[in-house]
Write a protein that binds this DNA or RNA. Sequence first.
DNA 1: TTGTATGCGTTATCAC
DNA 2: GTGATAACGCATACAA
Lengths: 337, 337
Amino acid sequence: MARSATIRDVASAAGVSIAVVSRVINPGSGPVRAETRDRVLAAIEQLAYRPRTAARELKQAGAATTLGLVLADVTNPFFARLADRVVWEARSRGVQVLLMTTQEDPHLEEEALATLVSRRVGGVIATPTATNPDSWARLRQLDTNVVFVDRSLDDVPGAHTVSIDNVRSARQATEHLVDLGHRRIGFISGPETSSTGRARTAGHRAVLAERGVEQDDALVRHVPFRGEQGGDAVGALLALPEPPTALVVANTAQVVAALRRLRLRGTAVPADLSVVVFDDDPWTELFEPALTIIRQPIAMLAAHSVELALAERASAAEPRSIAVEAEFVPRASTSAP
Amino acid sequence: MARSATIRDVASAAGVSIAVVSRVINPGSGPVRAETRDRVLAAIEQLAYRPRTAARELKQAGAATTLGLVLADVTNPFFARLADRVVWEARSRGVQVLLMTTQEDPHLEEEALATLVSRRVGGVIATPTATNPDSWARLRQLDTNVVFVDRSLDDVPGAHTVSIDNVRSARQATEHLVDLGHRRIGFISGPETSSTGRARTAGHRAVLAERGVEQDDALVRHVPFRGEQGGDAVGALLALPEPPTALVVANTAQVVAALRRLRLRGTAVPADLSVVVFDDDPWTELFEPALTIIRQPIAMLAAHSVELALAERASAAEPRSIAVEAEFVPRASTSAP
DNA sequence: TTGTATGCGTTATCAC
DNA sequence: GTGATAACGCATACAA
């Protein structure tokens, strides 16, 4: 309850000036006699003094004690695990993470960015929902590092991007199915406005073309990241006059919804339908049958993101685009048609 | 790149003093002529001015613009969903959330608390790992609201607690199984040092006593929240000379590990073993057989936690202990032995 | 209704 | 080695 100790309290308790205390707190910022330092440290200990972050941030503008993490939805296990790793990486560098969620709502995203601006965070890592050009621009204008992870958006100059090689992973999934003999492959992907959605369908289509498999646009479904439309897409695909014999769920956010629909319909996997999924949760292995998955190297995504977000902010720095390799894990949910 | 606008820039651009700008920014803090306000707002807009949070926090000490959320592990879906709701509740009050994880490591927890102290957060919501008496005390000493959620620890005077009624929920699970005819019920719970672990085993034991079912300490396993010991506990229970015919996994963090072991052993559920689980993830319904669960009202836990964490800090305020009701959801994983 | 001046807790620049 | 002192950006008591 007593007003907490300030640098001044420590100074007078140790019988020195605040300048000396400051030097003790920030080693290397100036000379302090060993004996004096000990006295100061004792006073600090005794008063339980902790320098106020707010004051520090105010003083040294370029601080970077905080990182903004703007996720669509922490409920999604993929994002949750990403958050976990980001927090870990940041902490190991003495940086804290401000977590915000957009629920895929551009308005909320805008709001999040505004507060991030107010806070002058060192950098922001985000799964962008929409191009809020003004907001992102304002952030960049403050010379804040912007890192898009998992997804990315065009039209945001200067933003870094970290994701898996989506074209390649989609290729692997489709190749796997084509090799098994499938010719009609349903593909549920993210919105076409998202780089992720575009890349994954592109990889898929490329393989079909190379293998001479007939393309049918009705088999490719672009589904929003949020909501239950993953289930509807499954329903629509299976209701087709010539339904698919295999399915790739390439929209991480919709995996559970899609599988729930499958279970509900009593569709036998892989007997009636082979399934590959872009998601790696412990439960995908517990699922019956164990699911064939694309495993994203989440720790690596986080490491690169934090690295870029906390980089020395040279405004001229070339925006980087990092693609890490995902792992294809064949399990029991895929078989010959 | 240009140094971002300050209140002074706005003032001179609008041809007024900074005091006026401040009043415009904080409505209700003083009178401003409508016409003047418009001019100021225009300048703010034009300069893309945003007041710096650091400066505000420094000035008004009681601010509460930030909330600390100290979780054991965001990878755990239960905590992830809790985080999601906490962020939501906080945001709706204009408060941001600083996310930190302890990985059940007292040392990391201590570190997290230290930085929270430096930041003078409005309150902290935590799933405490160990009693770091000094750390928690220092926090309370700063008149910071401390809310323990899900678990709680004794020895931390002044801390609020929000959780489900663990005794009651454990009772329901055990009653359900006893009603089905089970007499040997395995019980995997959290550490005995955690209030959660104690309450759940207490509820379990109370029912056995009431129903005249023989108690066997070998059937009750206390397992740490972190690691793979949930699986080992399952193995140990099934290796008993007289193995259980039913199992309650009352350690939310160990649910997946326990089930994985079950799956690995090929134990038939519920034929060989009925299973009740303290966890409500979408996938518990997708699991084969669909799991009988205790559904925790996560949104409510979050709402109460944020409420308490952001409450007016009257240091004399009575520490509150809120218990909300969980829902028992019988599904296919439980049957007569 | 508006403006001036002071302080919040630090860091950093100088003299000493 | 150490100590005054001036910012940092904002809110506010008080004067005008």
